[in-house]
Design a protein around this nucleic acid. Structure first.
Lengths: 92, 92
DNA sequence: TGTCTTTACGCTCATCGTAAGCATG
DNA sequence: CATGCTTACGATGAGCGTAAAGACA
């Protein structure tokens, strides 16, 4: 599992469509699809239902979405916080 | 930034020593050292002070340690939670 | 010289993108 | 056919480990 996988998952969950999510992430469909499959494999359960129009979250996916968003938000916070403490290069 | 980097950072912070942390992570020193350097580079600030005995956390590192532990804990929780919802293979 | 961390470097494995395959209406 | 996800496959890039190189007392 990687942060990239989580970002991919959230994008697909929001777009409900691998192709659109891929464009949003500046990626092509296949790697993004593989991210989702790898995640499902690692978690031991399906996160999406594959429909005619695209991808719809299953209950396990909904649960995981909350966690994923929270993790990504904390990663953001961590980076911004520490960057806020960083001495700028121009300060020496 | 990756989850692996966070795990490496926490291990080094706890062991205060790249060599020991590397053994704990079943890794050799160089890649682990590179993880820390990459993290410092990405965050734009030093996280450790290099001392004669090893590595000591700087203030920015202490702050980041809290965040890192929290993120890793949430990742764990996310995985366990969703795995708990997973239909087991033996259940069909 | 001894103890650590870091850099160099070759190799392996992971991951990307193009192209082809599969499923559905 | 049209649309959308997945698998195949060659090529690039990230990451490991061994070995060598700083840094410091």
């Amino acid at each position: 599992m990687s942060i990239t996988h989580l970002q991919s998952f959230v994008a697909v969950a929001e777009e409900k469509h691998v192709g659109r999510a891929a464009r949003r992430l500046h990626l092509t469909q296949p790697p993004l699809s593989r991210h989702i499959l790898a995640l499902e494999d690692e978690l031991g359960t399906r996160l999406f239902e594959r429909t005619r129009q695209g991808m719809r979250l299953l209950p396990a996916g909904e649960v995981f979405l909350h966690h994923a968003r929270r993790i990504l938000a904390e990663v953001d916070t961590a980076v911004l916080t520490v960057r806020g403490l960083a001495p700028r290069e121009s300060d020496g």
